[in-house]
Design a protein around this nucleic acid. Structure first.
Lengths: 253, 253
DNA sequence: CTTAACTCCGTATGCCACACGGTATTTCGG
DNA sequence: CCGAAATACCGTGTGGCATACGGAGTTAAG
């Protein structure tokens, strides 16, 4: 049973390749690992990661708490499996257009995903789990800029850059939304209540630039912050910077 | 006592301005809010946010658990205060050089801070706390690019971009370090153990580009990933992109 | 038909945040 | 100088969590 030699995390992630190690002796499991993972995703989608608990996953399946542990060794492990599962959802559409358009599509896919499953941003990866869907996606992301003129190293750094930026940008957006939703207080309302206090605490002359910039941004956005627009701004700058890198050096085949 | 009207969060954050609301009737508090905050920072520095608990803060001060709640209304609130406290640590050195150098300094300050207090990356801000140190820093960050030619909106977006990217980049670095430390297994060791398995799971021909890029990166970095270098790469691209934005339009004013 | 292997689950341990109420201490009003 | 009010500190309790452990029932291999 070479499965036993494999790190348990890996063997679960790659279960489609390795097969689920099912001893044939005892009773069959009522569910599959995939059903547990999907139940987990549903819980996390609805309640977020902090409220995600093994009990809720069990309840959703009609199992008792401890039975979950016969499918999955720990909460962290389950979350890791959920992450890779989710990475397989959008598929990997064929690349079209030039590298700028392709990278935009790569970023947009991640952006959308973070909004579909906001708990992804709350996952604390200890060691990055190398699962099939994650691996496929990384390959697909690299393919988006293959042949554009980057060195191998730069290709990795570029994808990292796009990914890091998108994650951070989505994080800001998602937490803002979550806050508004949970507290029932919109940004505008919060400011209406607290602005008088803040104006006293923060006299304009102590914060000349932020005062001016904040006012402008507020008027322009019609909100404190327009995350979608900040995202596009940042992405455009990054793409321009990458373009610079490519055009600044002699193009050879 | 107009303090009472103020959102409790704000009145604690701005306690130096508003004064700590100390009724004079009963016994004096054995410690100050600042001491509680510093104790909290010490705990978080040593053990990280997941292991950060009110009990440990209390133990460190020689108080019993529930006494902490006479200083600070909740765990979340305390963390918010810790964040603003930490933002005051590095001071705000005068800006020097052109806007590129200044922005680099801004990014570097955040990068260093995330490494000094890695738990900052684990904080889930619900509503961004507007505290004195955070406000001062934002003003200072904007001052770094004041007059460079950005519109007000772009100034805000630029600082957001730099901040988002730095946070994400630091996050990758910090979690990698933490994992290596906690598991006692270095990246190299992890790969040595798991590489044979992964090679079987991920045949090179299924992952042509990642295989090539991963090999190159591994050789070049002498590690799986060199975060410091990725950070500089990303930052340079972003700065180039911002430069592009400025030079692509007629300079006036 | 025995027995190993397995699933499911009840219970227990040791964490956690926090509500509530009690007691001791301090100071104010008279 | 005294009583009342305000306050700090803390003991206890509630309800949550992950997960270790062991037991009862189920299945199929030998």
């Amino acid at each position: 049973m070479e499965n036993q030699d494999v790190d348990r995390t890996l063997s679960l992630l790659w279960r489609r390749v390795l097969g689920v190690p099912q001893g044939s002796r005892g009773p069959k499991q009522r569910f599959s690992v995939d059903e547990v993972i999907r139940a987990g995703i549903a819980v996390a989608d609805e309640e977020g990661l902090p409220a995600f608990s093994m009990r809720k996953v069990a309840d959703r399946l009609g199992l008792k708490l401890m039975s979950i542990y016969t499918y999955v060794p720990s909460r962290d492990e389950l979350i890791g499996l959920m992450v890779d599962e989710v990475m397989g959802e959008p598929g990997l559409p064929p690349h079209e257009g030039d590298w700028r358009e392709r990278l935009t599509a790569v970023a947009r896919q991640m952006w959308d995903e973070f909004h579909r499953h906001p708990w992804l941003l709350q996952v604390e990866q200890s060691r990055p789990w190398i699962g099939p869907n994650g691996s496929d996606r990384y390959e697909w992301q690299l393919a988006a800029i293959e042949g554009a003129g980057f060195t191998d190293l730069e290709m990795d750094q570029t994808i990292t850059l796009i990914g890091d930026f998108t994650a951070a940008s989505a994080r800001a957006d998602v937490t803002a939304r979550r806050t508004a939703e949970q507290s029932g207080i919109s940004d505008a309302e919060w400011w209406a209540v607290n602005a008088p206090v803040l104006e006293r605490l923060m006299p304009l002359d102590a914060y000349p630039i932020s005062g001016r910039v904040g006012t402008t941004a507020g008027e322009e956005y019609n909100a404190v912050r327009d995350s979608e627009r900040s995202f596009r701004f940042g992405l455009d700058r990054i793409l321009d910077g990458l373009d610079q890198l490519l055009t600044s050096r002699p193009a050879d085949g």
